[in-house]
Design a protein around this nucleic acid. Structure first.
Lengths: 355, 355
DNA sequence: ACCTTTTAGTAAACTGGTTTACTAAAGCGC
DNA sequence: GCGCTTTAGTAAACCAGTTTACTAAAAGGT
């Protein structure tokens, strides 16, 4: 019997003493790896309650060598896209009995590599990794031989790991086809980071759609930089100065679309009257924009959930399934696509308004 | 000298052996609690590199009793407001050498209490706690005597802890004053969760502004429910059915404003032509809405940063500063406020349009 | 040359669990 | 009443660090 006024935590030893059994018995019984006659079990049960016993997690983890914790690595948690992803990851992990530690890399490879190291250092059991910049080999090297990593949303060239991505090719194709169907023939593609898988694939989808409609692919109508609003702005600025500007813009992220919108507004051009827009991701509240933005919606929450499932599956069943999984995307039609203004009219308009 | 082909992790013991010193020496030297002659130091240094030694965090934590990790508890990380908060918390924590574990409660008290328990169980060194539902005493009880908790954004009645909030009273007053200055006299207040500090205070600010302008406070013009779009919708629906509907709505969150917007659109009412709106938080991309929404901006990132600073300060210096800190808010003027339509005209309009 | 202080370093206890290998006693068949 | 199998339970090793209390040797002072 002990006093627990200023309760310093009680340990398995305390419980053992109180219940007149050994520490081993307490531990084994609590973990269900032993059956005990009811009298003994009851003694332990009461001791646990009396002493408010909670096993020390650090001791447990040290002994077991696992943490029941997963790390989620994202470039920026304040970005609604990754926030949504994080929400879904957290919920899925929780339901499987895992906690989540959050790692925001701000796209700094140092921090990415550092976080990858945490798996090795047993800080966590596994890693859900989302990046959005191209790898110069650093990431690949850091992930080499790391078994408990799942790649989300964006690829890291050469890494052998389970991967959960979206159908970027299909998304690019669908967005472009939709614009073509509205009558556009000069369609710009404002991609994200050049060279990154999602950007490449969406561009391929875009090119495939153009090709299917016998529209030549014009490199001057593509633009890369980053998945940011700033990129949207500068791309739009450049595109509008073209001798023959596009009548529609396919923006490869919410943020890019927002930047494009910003620039068009500054140029006093109307959407979709003067220029049509299709955005990508559809995480921002586009239905309230003026006009409501048509966008390709990515199944972000599904991606998070599947990522967790596959990660946990990977290290509990030591499954060797390192396939790449593709989630379908959908076009959400709203009000930012209309038949093109006559392009000569558009050019004149741009010139007139930019005075 | 040892082989590390299939590197099982090397321990302090291995380093000690390799450097021909004792484990204690290795540990103490690595932690800077001992000075050694250069020759010895160099031997250890080389052994560490050779063996790729990384101290086992679990052992370290068990021994030290701390984790260098903070927990962030929010209702929903996918909500852009809390995502922004999380981003700032993560960055601040990281810069002070702390990791963040993420806890999304979905407003379920069970989960909140569970997470609070994690501090006690030494799972983490401290807790940053943000809730947005009223406490029935459960939270208070769980936090009682918990020393390493900081409350963010929303109060939990009776808890003694450092608190970092925004100036809700000022925000409510400023929003309302702005609407009054535009000529409105029937101004609705759509609050969040009834009884919760932020809602109460903003309403007080709202009432104070009305009072200063000699406008009577009309309870029929206030509405509570939650910080959700759904609440915005249902509040707007009710308000429009009033015999004398409001000419302006002060919505107490981004989501509420979005819901209000949705409902007004369905009723074919224009903003700000028929009804003016001021939103709260200003995390959503309001500048692209139609119309761009005027809002009270809360310094969400500052709140996160201050919270971390105060939490860490609280348990490193065992400071006893449990004061409540208030961060200022600002009105961001955009396009959703205009002088009121004649209220009789508005009523007729609503009747006509709702046919 | 002797005493004191500093330096360099160690052994052992400690953090709090989990688990393996083992023993003592009870149950059971014949 | 003997041997065999369960049942109930334990001692001790182990996870990998940190820290306290201590010693041996070198340096310094007079």
């Amino acid at each position: 019997m002990m006093d627990l006024k200023k309760h310093k935590r009680s340990t398995a030893r305390d419980v053992a003493t109180e219940a007149s059994v050994s520490i081993a018995t307490v531990s084994r019984w609590l973990n269900g790896s032993i059956k005990l006659p009811e009298v003994t079990a009851e003694r332990i049960r009461r001791a646990v309650i009396l002493l408010r016993y909670e096993p020390n997690l650090h001791a447990r983890r040290l002994s077991l060598g696992r943490t029941d914790t997963l790390a989620l690595v994202v470039p920026d948690i304040a970005d609604p896209f990754f926030a949504l992803l994080a929400g879904s990851v957290e919920a899925s992990a929780e339901s499987l009995g895992f906690g989540i530690v959050l790692c925001a890399t701000l796209n700094r490879p140092t921090r990415e590599v550092d976080y990858i190291g945490r798996v090795y250092r047993n800080h966590v059991d596994g890693l859900l990794f989302a990046t959005n910049h191209p790898d110069d080999g650093t990431l690949l090297a850091a992930m080499q031989g790391q078994s408990n990593v799942v790649l989300l949303d964006e690829d890291v060239q050469g890494v052998k790991a389970p991967k959960v991505f979206c159908d970027n090719h299909g998304g690019g194709r669908e967005a472009t086809t939709h614009l073509i169907a509205a009558g556009h023939r000069r369609i710009a593609f404002v991609g994200g980071v050049e060279g990154v898988m999602s950007a490449v694939e969406r561009c391929e989808g875009y090119a495939a759609a153009l090709n299917a409609a016998n529209i030549p692919f014009d490199p001057a109508l593509t633009d890369y930089g980053g998945y940011t609003a700033e990129q949207g702005r500068s791309a739009a600025r450049r595109l509008l100065r073209l001798p023959e500007p596009p009548t529609a813009i396919f923006a490869s992220s919410d943020q890019i679309a927002i930047g494009v919108l910003e620039e068009l507004r500054d140029a006093s051009l109307s959407v979709p009257g003067d220029i049509s827009i299709v955005a990508y991701d559809d995480v921002a509240p586009f239905r309230f924009f003026s006009p409501a933005l048509t966008a390709i919606r990515q199944p972000v929450a599904d991606m998070g959930r599947r990522g967790v499932e596959r990660l946990v599956d990977h290290f509990t069943n030591t499954s060797t399934d390192i396939t790449e999984e593709r989630l379908p995307v959908h076009l959400i039609q709203r009000g930012s696509v209309a038949p093109p203004a006559r392009s000569s009219r558009l050019s004149r308009l741009i010139k007139a308004r930019s005075k």
